[in-house]
Design a protein around this nucleic acid. Structure first.
Length: 796
RNA sequence: GCCGGGGUGGCGAAACUGGUCAGACGCGCCCGACUUAAAAUCGGGUGGCCCUCCGGGCUAUGCGGGUUCGAAUCCCGCCCCCGGCACCA
């Protein structure tokens, strides 16, 4: 018998698949049955550098599911592409020195090779890259549709700025006050920026989570991020300014306890108050300093700070005039930037009131009933919430309101490597969209593209200078570029129709394939990409561009592979790449190991011995199956223990891959079958069937060796072979092991016929000498029978 | 603080709706075979404690209680870990 040679086998089958176009799928004929499609997708990689073991996990998951579905469906879409615009790619280019396009394209070539060596079954005819004009032309086109609909707009706003990357970041790209890409602490800047109006869909994004097959923890993360609070908006009158100022509160039932009023330092009214205030200098000093601080600094303040303005606001429920303060604990970007303060029933207000000696008035007693609250006194708090707002609404002083934590998505970037925003500024016409027929607005080549605080494209004067599409006069192009999350908000649509040069895609084709049935990717994108793409689909659906409102029906978050207890990252230098592992153990063993380590949605610790174990399993499979292929005779397998085991394994693996997405236990099931085959030996009449079953079931994980062994077993093209189904008759056994318990403790196990009645089972149980010893003549008070499993005798 | 997930051998883990002595499968370790030897490979063993040791007993799923004929699984209280949100009004 020959020795297992991973390299030779893997190269051989990769060539066969490519020649046979095994993984290329044509778009369906119009009217094709949608129940026969599966769209399996893993998040596309940033082509910055090479693949690491984390990528191996994600794409192996998607490949196992894709290969499994391919053998159960007529149409399977399993594409791949590159998120080649944006900071990760550009930073890699800066590090290596060279133009981002060259670096990115080198990386793509390299990564493509690695992906093919892993044996992943991508449809390479559909590959896309965000930086190619054929792609970003349509990103720009989609931007224009959103712009026309008022869903993309430009406004001055305080934004998060990363001083190292010299770029604006979306709220979603700031974690713990640090830059998503480089970890530098961000600062706040006031800038004119482009936004997508994703807040318009906040409620719907919340509601539609219910219909998605996503893990609960992912839904929770999105719910937290969207952050809905129910309450009321209440108008407070400021007589000195002749103005009504709205506040948001979740506790309208405590309105009678409001003893002061607070404006955020950035609140626009603060300027007006300063203008009319005798202590203007002091106020300006406080507000200026507070507003300049980062949110985290403000939150970290040991003691509450604030300053009295000298102005007063009138509480609409009782006409009381309460002092207006400016305090940094009130934030401009939540609610209305102004609050009514109820120190008796809010911890923060209480802290402030105690520090500055403001009165504290209790308006709800320990039983949750209103006190000292005018006509509402005696009413339970939850009832009063509604009643007070209803009453205010009658007077036009308030209304029920809902506030969200979600902000609009700031998507313009002061960097070079991204899609230009197709807008021209004209002195006469203002902001003018570039007409569709002039797309794409091509990103010009720049000698020095490095970040410098202002958009590098501003230095491409010839490119910036243009004519206004509206009046033909002189115009200037928008010099900021789009966040690469814009590119990735619709890429899965382009895969459906990747070569269309008339439109971003054919609507009918996209509506046939989409939504993505099974999406796979990192949890870290839960409050970024997964929010953005959902917003995009809802907006595009409202514009009639797509026929559905959710992009990803199923989502499987892959875990992280750690090395030495910490998450792999380039900066820690604990990155393992696939190439070396492939040449040492083979792609099949590597694929098996990444999924066998543990549940694929949890974190895992990498261990070299583990891959060796998998390599051992592959060799064992190869040896045993080859032996069977050479020695055992063909023909129908009889029903015996080994064939039963094979059918059970089919049922288990099918359920593990289909319903449970439990990749590690499916491998364990095949190992068990192989162990049984080894024990039974190749002379067992069911040996050939068991060997074929093992090979067929392991194929999604270890496609190369499976294909090779399938051929040795006298067949061809396992990838086209229909996924096996268990024979129901063989899943039922003639006998089973009856567990006999006395008082819930197992005392004996008996091999009994599966057709015995409950009474007969009890009789058998009682007859057992071991059981008798434990009953010891006592009376059996109760008998519990679980058919097919156990008998429990309760005595004494 | 609020929300979500979790805690099982030396290690990664299994046990899916409460039901076959909990620990499948693998790693590691131990013993044996092959070998001059080692590696590789193959076979066997492997939660803990104990006994009268070809057998058997007790104990064991973070801790304490409860429900049940029966609990890793359900309920109550506590401890710890991970993740999200957080001066969010």
């Amino acid at each position: 018998m020959d020795r297992y040679d991973a390299q030779a086998i893997e190269q051989k089958w990769q060539r066969v698949w490519e020649d046979a176009r095994a993984f290329n799928v044509a778009n369906p004929e119009p009217g094709a049955d949608r129940s026969r499609k599966a769209y399996v997708l893993a998040m596309l990689p940033y082509p910055s550098g090479t693949l690491h073991i984390g990528h191996v996990l994600v794409y192996t998951i998607s490949d196992v599911l894709a290969r499994f579905h391919a053998r159960r469906h007529e149409y399977l879409l399993h594409p791949i592409g590159f998120d080649s615009f944006g900071l990760p790619a550009e930073n890699d280019a800066i590090r290596k020195g060279g133009h981002p396009r060259e670096i990115v394209e080198e990386n793509i070539t390299h990564i493509t090779g690695e992906m093919k060596r892993m044996g992943w079954s991508f449809d390479w005819d559909r590959v896309i890259a965000a930086h190619e004009p054929e792609y970003y032309r349509w990103t720009q086109w989609l931007f224009l549709r959103l712009y026309e609909a008022g869903l993309a707009y430009r406004k001055p706003a305080p934004v998060k700025w990363c001083p190292k990357d010299q770029v604006v970041l979306a709220n979603e790209q700031v974690h713990d006050g640090r830059c998503e890409y480089c970890g530098t602490e961000v600062v706040s800047k006031n800038l004119e920026q482009w936004f997508f109006k994703q807040t318009a869909y906040a409620q719907e994004m919340l509601d539609d989570l219910a219909g998605l097959d996503w893990p609960e923890r992912i839904k929770t993360m999105q719910r937290n991020w969207i952050g809905r609070s129910e309450g009321a908006e209440v108008l407070f009158r400021i007589d000195e300014l002749e103005l009504d100022v709205p506040v948001f509160t979740t506790r309208p039932d405590t309105l009678f306890g409001a003893t002061f009023f607070v404006l955020a330092p950035e609140h626009p009214l603060v300027e007006e108050i300063i203008a009319r205030s005798p202590n203007a200098a002091e106020l300006r000093d406080y507000a200026g300093h507070a507003a300049a601080k980062r949110g985290e600094e403000r939150a970290a303040e040991e003691e509450k700070t604030g300053i009295f303005t000298g102005f007063h606001a009138t509480n609409p429920v009782n006409g009381e005039r309460i002092p207006i303060w400016v305090a940094e604990y009130v934030l401009m970007d939540y609610g209305t930037g102004a609050i009514m303060a109820v120190p008796a029933h809010d911890e923060r207000d209480r802290e402030f009131a105690e520090r500055f000696d403001v009165p504290i008035r209790t308006v709800i007693d320990d039983d949750g009933v209103l006190v000292d609250s005018g006509e509402f006194t005696g009413m339970p708090a939850d009832e009063a919430k509604r009643a007070i707002v209803d009453r205010l609404a009658e007077d036009g002083r308030g209304r029920h309101a809902i506030s969200y934590r979600l902000r609009d998505w700031g998507f313009s970037r002061q960097r070079y490597w991204g899609s230009p925003i197709p807008i021209v500024y004209c002195e006469a016409c203002g902001q003018v969209p570039v007409p569709d027929e002039q797309l794409p607005v091509v990103l010009p080549d720049l000698e020095d593209y490095r970040p410098r605080g202002i958009a590098p494209l501003a230095s491409a004067e010839d490119w910036v200078r243009t004519t206004c599409p509206s009046c033909g006069g002189p115009g200037q192009r928008e010099v900021e570029t789009m966040d690469t999350f814009v590119d990735s908000s619709w890429y899965f649509l382009r895969y459906c129709d990747p070569h269309d040069d008339q439109a971003p895609f054919d609507k009918e084709v996209v509506d046939w394939w989409c939504p993505v049935d099974q999406y796979i990717g990192g949890v870290d994108h839960t409050t970024m990409h997964l929010i953005y793409a959902r917003f995009f689909m809802k907006a595009l659906n409202d514009l009639g561009i797509v026929g559905f409102r959710e992009p990803f029906q199923g989502f499987f978050p892959n875990g992280w592979i750690q090395l030495g207890g910490s998450k792999m990252s380039k900066s820690k230098g604990n990155v393992i790449g696939p190439d070396e592992l492939i040449s040492r153990y083979g792609a099949d063993a590597l694929r098996l190991y990444t999924l066998f380590m543990g549940p694929a949605d949890g974190d895992m610790e990498w261990a070299d011995e583990g891959v060796e174990g998998m390599a051992r399993f592959v060799r064992r499979l190869y040896r045993l199956v080859t032996e069977v292929a050479e020695q055992s005779s063909r023909g129908d397998a009889p029903a015996n223990d080994l064939s039963h085991k094979a059918h059970e394994t089919i049922a288990r693996v099918t359920d593990d891959l289909g319903r449970r997405k439990s990749f590690n236990t499916a491998i364990a099931a095949v190992m068990e079958l192989l162990n049984d085959l080894s024990r039974a030996g190749s002379a067992d009449p069911a040996a050939r069937f068991a060997a074929e079953t093992a090979v067929s079931l392991i194929q999604p994980y270890a496609p190369h060796v499976a294909e090779e062994l399938w051929e040795r077993l006298g067949h061809s093209r396992l990838w086209e072979e229909e996924w096996p189904s268990p024979d129901e008759a063989q899943l039922r056994r003639a006998t089973f092991e009856l567990v006999v318990q006395v008082n819930g403790r197992v005392r004996d196990r008996l091999e009994v016929g599966a057709d015995l009645s409950e009474d007969e089972l009890v009789a058998r149980a009682k007859a057992s000498p071991r059981v008798q010893a434990h009953i010891d003549g006592a009376e059996v008070r109760q008998t519990i029978v679980v058919p097919g499993k156990l008998v429990n005798l309760v005595v004494g």
